[in-house]
Amino acid sequence: MLAKRIIPCLDVKEGRVVKGINFVGLRDAGDPVESAQRYSAGGADEITFLDITASHENRRTLFDLVDRTASTVAVPLTVGGGVRERRDVSELLHAGADKVSINSAAVSNPDFVKEMAEAYGSQAIVVAIDAKRVPGEAEKWTVYTHGGRRDTGLDAIAWARQMADYGAGEILLTSMDRDGTQDGYDLLLTRAVVDAISIPVVASGGVGTLGHVHEGLAAGGADAALAASIFHDGHYTVAEVKEYLLDHGVCVRPPERD
């Protein structure tokens, strides 16, 4: 039986791990390669890097980081942030990323996703959706871009469906309302997207407790749970998350003891 995946996410800026709330107030949280090694040794099923370096000039730093991580970490690596053109995708895959995550560029040019899926295979193309609840509406979310600063007005569910049709291999779904709050995933949002499409959905944004991870996978129905701060801040290890999930009847790959 296919296991649900636990994915530690590292927000990376100029080659360092950073963490903030709702994408502001960033602070340094260490070396990405070391963190990725530690997580993978602890049983992470995948590692995600989101590069939030503002300028494109520092891309070399990211490629170097991806290369060093892929050389030492034997689990799949997803890299996103600032992916705008074909060259960005090819360079990241060449550096050793297994999947590349596309966000704003998908909104400005949906065909870009189609072209990249055709060129590199759907399995290599993730579309990241930053969704925020429309005020006053219980079950309506719109898609935000540019690090959560710009409301595109696109309906998040319809957008997820379109991206799946365009060949995305996976949706990385982040609740902007919950990101960094540790209040738990937006379960209604997660469930609505999971039910709308037939490609895997990675839930993101809001995990603060072990119970939140369980909810995202069980009630939310996500295929994978992505979390950042609970791991970086040392609240929980990946192994603790997995043991909790196993105890609660969720199929995950058990942590290895070397």
Partner: peptide, 24 residues
């Protein structure tokens, strides 16, 4: 879902594999 993406187990008695081991 297809593609089959993620970690799954094998059933095997061959010497290079461990039964019920998880692979990507």
């Amino acid at each position: 879902k297809v593609p089959h993406i993620g970690w799954n187990q094998i059933e095997s008695r061959h010497p290079v594999f461990e039964n019920e081991e998880w692979y990507y």
